[in-house]
Design a binder for these strands. Sequence first.
DNA 1: CTCAATTACGCAAACGGTTTCGTAAATAAA
DNA 2: TTTATTTACGAAACCGTTTGCGTAATTGAG
Lengths: 336, 336
Amino acid sequence: MNHVTIKTLAKQLKLSPGTISKALRDSHEISAATKKRVLDLVHKLNYVPNPYASSLRKRKSKTIAVVLPEVADSFFSLAINGIESVAQEKGYHVLIYLTHEKFTKEQAILEDFNSGRVDGILLSISRETTNSRHIQQLQSTGVPVVLFDRVAEDVVSGKVTTDDFDSGYKATRHLLENGCRHIVFLSISNSLAISNKRMQGYKKALSEYPNQTSSVMLCSDNAAGDVKALKKLMGKKKRPDGIVVSVEKLAITAYHACQELGLNIPGDVKVIAFSNLATAFLLNPSLTTVTQPAFEMGKRAASLLFRTLEKKGDASLRETIILPSTLTIRQSTSGA
Amino acid sequence: MNHVTIKTLAKQLKLSPGTISKALRDSHEISAATKKRVLDLVHKLNYVPNPYASSLRKRKSKTIAVVLPEVADSFFSLAINGIESVAQEKGYHVLIYLTHEKFTKEQAILEDFNSGRVDGILLSISRETTNSRHIQQLQSTGVPVVLFDRVAEDVVSGKVTTDDFDSGYKATRHLLENGCRHIVFLSISNSLAISNKRMQGYKKALSEYPNQTSSVMLCSDNAAGDVKALKKLMGKKKRPDGIVVSVEKLAITAYHACQELGLNIPGDVKVIAFSNLATAFLLNPSLTTVTQPAFEMGKRAASLLFRTLEKKGDASLRETIILPSTLTIRQSTSGA
DNA sequence: CTCAATTACGCAAACGGTTTCGTAAATAAA
DNA sequence: TTTATTTACGAAACCGTTTGCGTAATTGAG
């Protein structure tokens, strides 16, 4: 119960705390014999140095923060795995925070990091985030931030994203090539860069085809409401014949709406979604997806952060990594 | 760049650090006027107290650890949300660790907690964990541990699980009632209590029906290998006509195997799975599931932990909460 | 054998808050 | 007016490690 500190060891071994500390850090000024005595007792007493005392003294916490909109989504689950894998390897600890897509929460969370709680931050901004003073404020105090997936364009920092414009283009073009001429784009935000880039790709593809109509539907965080709105849209006489779902969770919304309307996928409507769902190929019908390398993105983002933590060179701070997404064609967009 | 500490404030306001500290904690021995001066400067300088200095002095970290096998799974994703929601409300921080189903990793992670890094632990044990000395060792030093979902039976602690025996029973009985007579049970471990309880429920249900054969297949962490093994089993002349999938990730394995063998679900084989997949109802065919209240379990586990942290009463340490799972019948088990 | 260089360790000051105790000044009671 | 209280703050120890500096003892060089 009475916890063991460096002093406990010092007393038992009749050494000074400083000596113990040096022995533990394998300092050259401590004899091999003493080191062994120390290590033996450490093992016997299950002594583990208090990280907070150490952090205080060294001004390093050996921990990073991961700030996410939520973790319901497959993408973020996989990303966390990637992040954790490199953090564990580097001996860092990972604090996790969810903004639940709220800007004010994101602000409050980041503000706390002015305390020195973490050495660096991995951030994917909330849907509501339109300005990034809170991020810049943190950077100005010397805390490195790496943005991933949902990045803020006006922040200069390490960034890891996928080729969102191209993916949006490819996804849309795939629908066009399969005969769609009225394609809806389901979005979760009209401020998020990731959303806009995908949409720009969508528009670019559309612009290359004549005789098509487009429409963009902005979804909320209310699944039932989204289904209702989409049903209304899809229930019209001149309804869309293709849907580009720009974010994973809306894929279910789209299927749900079509199912309730009795619309056949891909017969009546073709659906393609940005998604990391492991079950995509098992859906009814199997879902054509644009898949992001989520685990890899987490790894890359974490690696980038650790590189800037290890070197004091601010060079890597500006590095932007863009990974390719992959289009996997399945039944939901199959021609005729 | 040069970070602001309590001394910075003290100097600028010509007060002592102690006074600042008290003002910040709204001590009654500081005048309202002084408090206001302090708060104003705090806000102006973006001052946030160093949590490690505070932790050191108060011997409390205001952070908990969540130790999970992995986070690929929907169950754990949802549980994390539940945990985070109550942690955020209580002003606690959440460290996340993944064992990747390795016992040695679990040991190493828990051992670190002898350092005082966290005030309490939420743990779901790895598939490999068969003894729990590492958990008991931690408890013996006064660190509260709450086990959830995958609990260790020989540990006396707070526990949150679902009614696994009953669920296994209900799931199996559901298959039996729909005509299955040769039901396979897919398991990921024969040491995990959660797995065994579900299996015991399965056996109990079987025992109530005559003329049935049973078999248990232990799966690995290699999805491809599992599919192969399951295909071998399902490819026999006298193949099973029902599958109880005892853990989410194997549901995909089961579908995959059946699909590759050209077996019709539910015609040739009926499948029921313990799963929190949001896409269960969209699968082909839609999947009958036993769903755990994952978010709620996370919340309950966290709440239980916080209760034991707040009160010094060890009473709650022994509390066991068992929540009901719900059976949702879909096409994958529909009769004839 | 003397003096310089190592070697191996102790001392004490940080790191940034928290908290107990003491006390001067202001206020109240007598 | 004198004494007892209260108010509002300062001083300093403390939490557990780290680390620069000092030094006794051992070793080496000349």
